[in-house]
């Protein structure tokens, strides 16, 4: 395999195309930003604090989860533990991109990771499984998702009542359905299906019996370990 040069991996045309590719998903993200803005004001944050959080943290699930912890006083350790546990999946997601990212100079390599989130990573990861190196989606897709998240939060703190109940319209399932469609769009061999089964069962077991927010890491590592132990026949290994 020829090493792709940095300019092939990230050029403005591709970044723009990937920005537009994730625009439909970003429109749904706006709705969630609105829901977050509304919820954070109800939890006692000011408008600017909620917006600052969306701008700098840019990780919806962890932002929602910590809202329950805000009050007159905030316990720092549980707060940091929840944020870390929910976002620890980024560690594995970043590691999975490493074979592509190592081709970039360090500044760009770590720079685009500021925008790493589930949706743009899922696209990059599935493109890679299908033989295409696509880091432009991390930057372009990440940018449109970040803009949508921030814009949604701004709307939410201002006119949150408009979307008080996104579940009613099925909008809470956007990310789940999107991620599922990315998985199913990838390679499906008996080996992969068994890895998915083990990952899914481990995740559910962790969800039931291990501390909260650990299930993604447990499922991902279980699938990864099985993949490590079980060599693919076609590539000889």
């Amino acid at each position: 395999m020829l090493p792709a040069s940095a300019s092939q991996l990230l050029n403005p045309t591709d970044v723009g195309r990937e920005f537009l590719r994730l625009l439909p998903i970003a429109l749904f993200v706006i709705v969630f930003g609105i829901a977050f803005g509304l919820a954070s004001v109800q939890a006692g944050l000011t408008d600017w604090q909620a917006i600052l959080m969306s701008v700098t943290v840019f990780a919806g699930a962890s932002q929602f989860a910590t809202l329950e912890l805000w009050g007159q006083h905030v316990s720092l350790l549980p707060l940091v533990a929840v944020v870390f546990a929910i976002n620890a999946r980024h560690i594995l997601m970043g590691a999975a991109l490493y074979p592509m990212l190592r081709e970039l100079p360090a500044g760009r390599r770590y720079g685009i990771l500021f925008l790493l989130t589930d949706a743009n990573w899922a696209v990059a990861s599935q493109d890679y499984q299908n033989g295409r190196q696509n880091l432009s989606v991390i930057l372009g897709g990440g940018l449109v998702l970040w803009l949508a998240w921030v814009a949604g939060t701004v709307f939410g703190v201002t006119f949150g009542g408009l979307v008080a109940n996104p579940e009613q319209y099925g909008l809470d399932m956007v990310l789940g359905c999107f991620l599922l469609s990315m998985v199913l769009g990838g390679k499906r061999s008996p080996r992969v299906l068994l890895i998915w089964t083990v990952a899914g069962l481990s995740a559910v077991a962790a969800y039931w019996w291990l501390p909260p927010h650990t299930h993604v890491i447990v499922g991902a590592l279980a699938g990864g370990v099985l993949g490590y132990c079980w060599k693919e026949r076609r590539h000889g290994g």
């Binding site: 997601m93 789940g176 599922l180 992969v192 890491i217 590592l221 060599k231």
Partner: peptide, 25 residues
């Protein structure tokens, strides 16, 4: 090659581990 197999299997497992508990719960 082993590390690569781990990464590839883990990559799609992350998504499965997000989605399956979502369905169960």
């Amino acid at each position: 090659p082993g590390v690569e197999r781990f990464i590839n299997a883990m990559a799609s497992s992350v998504l499965i581990a997000v989605v399956v508990p979502m369905a169960v719960s």
